[in-house]
Write a protein that binds this DNA or RNA. Structure first.
Lengths: 124, 124
DNA sequence: CGGAATCCTGAGAGATACTG
DNA sequence: CAGTATCTCTCAGGATTCCG
């Protein structure tokens, strides 16, 4: 067997910043290049561009061009991309349950539902 | 906010080979250094050792020494480590649903339950 | 605005040999 | 058996500038 579904998924979302982009698309409804660039810490345009292209190629997102001036380009989750939400939520749930003291500065434990419903600014 | 639970989880399992080790512990019940070394493709002892130490430090696994001859050392999942199974399963489920043609050489779609119940040798 | 083009660096991985 | 010790090396990512 040359491939394993777990390994395969990891190859799609395991690179640096990919899950941050997904997270911001899912939880903050971000769609634009400079939104990602401004809100994801330490990312640079070259790397962001590379991640977006990879995600487009693997069918997680769709690149949509609006011919306005200035030009507007939006990155949107596909159905396949939206299906990753279950993984993202499980990742959040894990740290919320087992690492709340290191994850939340108020050290207050909270539920996944509480976290997902919180002000977007709580996200890094 | 300095930290995000999604990002925090990714830092714990995002490095190369970590999920492979977890997968083999969860689904194949492997516990020993040379089992991992032999079954995880392209891993070398230095990297394996590094990953195991990280996982021990973050509390995902426990290192247990048996003073026999030859010495036997087992790596066991902690409760915290076992809690990652939900993420691993979601990762498997995603590729099974959206990438079965690239993941399974027989190109036959199957359910997560079928995959988890299959012969361990199907895993890479 | 949404990138592309450069140049550059260093952390992390590969290979191999060795040891208690 | 379960690792450590080196050494090398690549390439992903960082910083910066520029373009349509």
């Amino acid at each position: 067997m040359k491939c394993c579904p777990i390994d395969n998924t990891f190859k799609m979302i395991g690179k640096k910043f990919t899950i941050h982009i997904l997270r911001n698309m899912m939880l903050q409804e971000q769609t634009r290049f400079n939104q990602f660039l401004d809100s994801i810490e330490n990312i640079n345009p070259k790397t962001l561009s590379a991640r977006l292209r990879e995600m487009e190629k693997t069918g997680l997102i769709e690149r949509r061009v609006f011919n306005e001036t200035p030009i507007r380009i939006e990155y949107l989750l596909t159905q396949k991309g939206k299906a990753l939400r279950a993984i993202i939520e499980q990742m959040a749930a894990f740290s919320i349950k087992y690492e709340s003291r290191t994850v939340f500065k108020d050290k207050k434990p909270r539920t996944l539902h509480q976290f997902l419903g919180e002000n977007p600014t709580v996200l890094k």
